[in-house]
Design a protein around this nucleic acid. Structure first.
Lengths: 148, 148
DNA sequence: TTAAAGTCTATTAATTTAGTAGACAATTAT
DNA sequence: ATAATTGTCTACTAAATTAATAGACTTTAA
């Protein structure tokens, strides 16, 4: 499971990507538009700023705006900034590797290799999905069911 | 990220699958063989018993043993028993669905649809990997690198 | 120079995780 | 029978993480 931080971040980026001419948006505007707790959103936007995804301006007419093209901002990257590892176990993580204490031999661990497959599949999907993709998705869904 | 419970469960199942003629193994044996905290493992094995993956016998010659063929026990199922949802958000979960409070329209949520893809890819991999697969994996890995 | 905005530091309540402890119940050997 | 063996049940807890909130501070523009 991912944290709410990541979800809020993606929602905020979608909102910011929708700002005409990338005009700065107030934290409060973003919070209201996406129905997010304002004070919590503040720290999330700060994280995204530190990661050079966003930039901001203080004072009148200020606010947050994208520093990168929405097509370049990948969901994968956002998760890594707010949540950390993509992998389901730290020993399988590319960016946040940590050894398992109980593991006797990482190289022959069959669990690890299975988890690598899952990781790679996730990276493939999320690394190829940008904020632009999320904005541009056709808003029509024909069936209510979850696809299997 | 998954919890250690799931990882310990899979390791325990691998150990039990290795028992000749499915002979009962003591909790202590499994714990020692897989390097797991014994007392914690107890509750994990109980969960697996309640889920009909394992069965047990008390007294001398007792212990835990598989109730299903290792080829039928899928990693997917084990995760759902010990960890719960496979999906990265509750609103995308097939078995543990929960609504997002902040979400305005689930049907047109583009984040949700992306997360469904990740979920389905994960289910595809883990639902087709059994304990037998993990046991039978060739123990040779040629390169130390994580595959990209 | 003042109002508007973001920024920084702290704190916190709730939840989850990863265990531990001890009494109890069932089974088998003697 | 009964003692030894082995799993089961209930409760507790320490540490970490999550999801925030509060308040003082800084920067910018009118």
């Amino acid at each position: 499971m991912l944290t709410k931080k990541t979800k809020y971040a993606i929602k905020a980026l979608i909102a910011l990507a929708g700002s005409e001419e990338n005009k700065p948006m107030l934290i409060a505007e973003v919070a209201k538009q996406e129905n997010l707790p304002k004070r919590f959103l503040e720290s999330i936007l700060l994280d995204l700023k530190r990661a050079k995804i966003l930039n901001s301006k203080m004072g009148i007419g200020g606010g947050y705006f994208l520093m990168q093209n929405p097509a370049e901002i990948k969901v994968l990257e956002i998760i890594r900034i707010l949540d950390g590892p993509i992998a389901l176990y730290p020993c399988v993580s590319l960016n946040f590797y940590q050894k398992c204490e109980e593991c006797k031999d990482e190289l022959t661990c069959s669990i690890r290799r299975m988890m690598q497959k899952v990781r790679d599949a996730s990276i493939d999907i999320m690394g190829n999905t940008s904020i632009e993709d999320l904005v541009n998705q056709p808003n029509i869904i024909l069936d209510k069911k979850n696809s299997p």
